[in-house]
Design a protein around this nucleic acid. Sequence first.
DNA 1: AAATAAATTTAGTCTCACCTAAATTTATTT
DNA 2: AAATAAATTTAGGTGAGACTAAATTTATTT
Lengths: 223, 223
Amino acid sequence: MSEAITQSIQDYLKHIYELNEYGGSASTNDLAARLNIAPASVTGMLQKLASTKSPLVIYKKHQGATLTKNGEKAALEVIRHHRLLETFLVNTLGYSWDEVHHEADKLEHVISEDFEARMAEALGHPTRDPHGELIPTADLTMPADESCPLASLRTDETATVRRVSDDDPALLRHLREIGVVPEVKIVVKNYSAFDGNLTIKVEGQKANIVLGTAVTSQVFVDK
Amino acid sequence: MSEAITQSIQDYLKHIYELNEYGGSASTNDLAARLNIAPASVTGMLQKLASTKSPLVIYKKHQGATLTKNGEKAALEVIRHHRLLETFLVNTLGYSWDEVHHEADKLEHVISEDFEARMAEALGHPTRDPHGELIPTADLTMPADESCPLASLRTDETATVRRVSDDDPALLRHLREIGVVPEVKIVVKNYSAFDGNLTIKVEGQKANIVLGTAVTSQVFVDK
DNA sequence: AAATAAATTTAGTCTCACCTAAATTTATTT
DNA sequence: AAATAAATTTAGGTGAGACTAAATTTATTT
């Protein structure tokens, strides 16, 4: 029988997947930071995950981790759970978008496939969660995402906000307040080469606002 | 800082509470059977739970376990979660009453107090779950329950079904089929002293039915 | 290219919650 | 009351998943 995919393994896979999305390979240190675990512990787990009959992870010393096909399926399963749960909590229990992440992080490991299917059905098979993040399909493929960081835009460019990072409640409350939410149109009024600040005009808001890279790197847009 | 109440401790407390409801003290063996754990392991855990600064459990060698005030509060918290979840799954996601137990057993350890409060609100602060079992109140007291086992009734007695045990899906499907569900009235037509069988007439059903003690001990009624 | 800094791995421990096998205690028969 | 059976506890062990401290490897400066 194949090795059990425990909750903590699910967490490793999820974060390796997310780190792979940009950086290529997921480094020991980055994983440790995301998982709130000592780097030494991460090394141990990666070695273990990479050395089973049909491994979930590909791992080379000092070069970080990547997912195998199986590992990726398992990761997408967890991510699908997470994003459906966030949508469900907002739509059905009246959570606001900054409150759902922590709850979904716990529930994602525990719900059954039946629960997943019933949620998807009840929600009308949504393709994005409340933060605009794409929900992996029931057959565990991740839809293509064209969006780029708001931080990469320059003066006079126009774009539509597609998604925002879901893991910082304070940031989410701020974004809600200034109207930077999915599907809203923005125009870049100014780019400051010194600090990377962007001055933008948000559709439906009167005043321009200035955002630092701490914010603009977490907001993703389609041009 | 007080000792963490882990998932497995929550399970111990829940089952000690339920065993205390009838039998007085919860025996090592009964607990082991309910938890699907070796008796030796139960002894170890009970010793541990009974020997902290402010213990959750009272335990004397060879005499089983009881809950302290704190232990009882913790147990009722879990039971409240479980029964609210069962109600929520049935009302909101269309589960049938035989499908919810297992899902609730996993979720009960994971949801936040906020989740609990939102569910209670969304459901209109129900007092019973779909099986008729009483839901502990938000301040963690268990409402009084007057009901007695159907098995204790005799010929010509009349009663109202109040609750049924929720942990055997096959039994639940059978009860649903024969109409033995909460709030239904029944009349005992015959009692057989040999095997304990009861012949009953269920309100709204044409034919009488005969039930063995495997069933009648799991159904609770008010006379 | 050597020196320093940063990232990573090794080695050795710890806790939790379980296990089995054997010993002991309590309960039940004969 | 002794013998047997059942329940419980003791003793010793395991695996998962974390930890720290020290060693090593890779990357970055000077």
